[in-house]
Design a binder for these strands. Structure first.
Lengths: 229, 229
DNA sequence: TAAACCCCTAGCCATTTGGCTAGGAAGGGA
DNA sequence: TCCCTTCCTAGCCAAATGGCTAGGGGTTTA
């Protein structure tokens, strides 16, 4: 029951003593402990910090300057913030590679993440323990690692998704959330202290961004994209 | 970074040498390793088997007769099978307590699981490491453990959900799925080889069952309920 | 300072809904 | 057999939506 490929220690691709310094970001303790345990079976890995919020991720990266950041983009209500973090890291901390460990594979998110310089993308549900370790190693060495299923998504996504996710504004999201609760434009207007016209305006804009033509589809898409917590 | 309440070993509620035998069922390695690591920090716990499929769960329980089964009901495409397993276990292996560790809290699933004799229900995203250990211990001792949020759901659910989720029919689900893709009644009619009237009929029925009044709300609800895969 | 966004508002019009009433037909149990 | 459920169809009408065009004001940024 407990076999796993023994710790194949340092293969010397870096100086034998140097270990890969890793920051793990996931809101979920179980995942953090699991990732840490899997990686630290190998002598070459050291998880130097854990983070559970978007702020904490930035702090940890800034403080520890890790070789690899393993992150679940979904640390809060708004996955978009996870994407922003990818931007920040690849921009300001080029020596830190980013590997996304996602719960669910969402076309839009995958493509956007890769566009922002993420070099690893694995699905929690599909990854095996050894794949995770190897993946982290590979990412650190500058390779791009895409898990099962991720590849296909990329192939499909690169063309079509292009302008699809151009970031919904706060108000647009607010409106969509209200819509998903069944509110009419009039009700939403009252709720948000704006006119019905404005509600329609936001909806039209959001629809164009997501390429939808009906509010039902809008909430379907938003939900599938993880925008509706 | 590594403090966690030291192993408070056997408190003597059972004979000091006896450890709590646990089976962990989760499709996800990271979770399995995480759960195991967290629990085995305490001397009183032993994870005797892991399972990744519905069949494997039954086999493991049958073979090891564990004190506690920790399970994520969502081991495949069909969460319903997870519920059936709860039935089986509580029925045929009464000495094995079942603790559900869910990714997402879904009203229907929570209520159904509890109705089938599950005595522990925690959310992966919200549980803390010590809560998990304590929870398992408590469940083993016959207590009922409900995590954050679960309690509220139960409170709401027991009354209202009662007849709310009276099972959507196949056709109703088909229609809802189409709606969530933005199709109009007319389009759906063509797609399903029925008239527009019938489409509206199914929608009306589904709406009554879910207590919604707009198709956007319908897909919102269906999505939140995990009906739209 | 202009360009680029975001937010707000107005009105028009064809379509699509939501909600209702009122049927018919087929299959599974009690 | 009768009852219950699911599935199918029809028509009506008020209300809501989608898709436009055409504005104004505010902030940030190049």
């Amino acid at each position: 029951m407990a076999n796993e490929g023994r710790p194949d220690v340092s293969l010397g691709r870096r100086s034998p003593m140097a270990s890969t310094r890793i920051v793990v970001a996931d809101r979920n303790v179980i995942n953090r402990v699991g990732i840490r345990s899997i990686l630290e079976r190998n002598a070459g890995f050291a998880v130097v910090a854990e983070a559970t919020t978007y702020e904490a991720v930035m702090d940890a990266v800034d403080e520890h300057g890790p070789d690899v950041l393993i992150i679940d983009l979904d640390l809060g209500d708004d996955t978009t913030r996870g994407l922003k973090i990818c931007d920040d890291i690849t921009e300001n901390y080029p020596s830190t590679k980013v590997m996304v460990l996602a719960n669910t594979l969402n076309e839009m998110i995958v493509v956007e993440a890769l566009r922002r310089g993420v070099t690893g993308y694995l699905s929690k549900d599909e990854v095996r323990a050894d794949e995770l370790s190897k993946g982290v190693k590979a990412v650190q060495d500058g390779e791009t690692v895409l898990g099962k299923g991720v590849g296909n998504i990329v192939a499909r996504g690169l063309g079509s998704v292009r302008g699809q996710m151009e970031h919904l504004t706060d108000r647009e999201l607010d409106v969509i959330r209200a819509v998903s609760k069944g509110m009419s434009n009039k009700q939403i207007a009252v709720l948000m202290y704006i006119t019905e016209s404005t509600v329609k305006f936001h909806l039209q804009n959001a629809s164009k961004k997501l390429g939808t033509h009906k509010r039902a589809e809008l909430v379907g898409r938003a939900h599938a994209a993880g925008l509706l917590k």
